[in-house]
């Protein structure tokens, strides 16, 4: 090894100057510390979210290819109820709106009451959604729509309950965050936790729109 293999590496000074904010809701100057220190966490959550999107994409594709594979068992028109699916859609859309209000309360309000109020409303809407979804599955089971009946139903029960499981997880996370809020107040981990949960919540809303359009509307048309 000789001395002439010295390769200088240019130091890019402008890189440090233009630090990008994390994607998603920026909290504004009052929360600058949280934004600076927790940027990676929110970005990391986006990466996770996009990997989750790939799983849902695959399950959607599987579902579409399995549409004809009912093996003589019950199909969409025998199993689905438009009224119930519509109620679930409205509940989830409303919960996305209320989470948006919670995010605004986090950004602009000093007092915690408004934030907690919107978070609790969001939680109740999420639980109500889960209640209706479980009722749907129960009805389907009663009508012979069990996962082992056909390839079509296996695909359905891979896709839709996985979304329900995500909503369950998000609700548990929301309760845990409310607990942290009660113990520690609005400190940096709670703020960034709410930011990340908001990403998950809106993501699940979008996935549900896909499920409603493709599985329910598509199945009943």
């Amino acid at each position: 090894m000789s001395q002439n293999n010295v390769i200088p590496i240019e130091h890019n000074a402008t890189q440090d100057a233009q630090k990008t904010r994390h994607p998603g809701l920026n909290l504004g100057p009052a929360h600058a510390h949280e934004e600076d220190t927790r940027e990676e966490m929110v970005f990391g959550f986006w990466v996770f979210m996009m990997s989750d999107l790939i799983i849902f994409g695959l399950l959607f594709a599987t579902y579409v290819t399995m549409l004809g594979g009912t093996a003589g068992g019950p199909g969409p028109s025998e199993l689905f109820e438009m009224k119930s699916a519509f109620i679930e859609t409205m509940l989830l859309l409303a919960s996305s709106f209320t989470f948006g209000m919670a995010s605004l309360a986090l950004k602009y309000r000093e007092d915690r009451t408004r934030l907690v109020f919107w978070l609790v409303v969001t939680l109740l809407l999420g639980v109500a959604f889960l209640f209706f979804e479980l009722k749907d599955f129960h009805t389907m089971f009663d009508n012979g729509g069990v996962p082992s009946r056909s390839g079509y139903l296996s695909a359905f029960f891979s896709l839709v309950p996985l979304h329900g499981l995500h909503v369950t997880g998000a609700c548990i996370w929301l309760v845990a965050l409310l607990g942290q809020l009660a113990v520690y107040g609005l400190d940096a981990p709670v703020k960034t936790g709410i930011l990340r949960l908001a990403i998950l919540w809106h993501f699940l809303d979008i996935v549900w729109i896909g499920i409603f359009s493709l599985v329910y509307l598509g199945g009943l048309s």
Binding site: M1, Q3, N5, V6, I7, P8, I9
Partner: peptide, 15 residues
């Protein structure tokens, strides 16, 4: 701060 390949080796080369 690393300015070359095998920076530690280069440093040792130069003492």
């Amino acid at each position: 701060e690393i300015y070359s390949i095998d920076a530690f080796m280069t440093e040792k080369d130069r003492g």
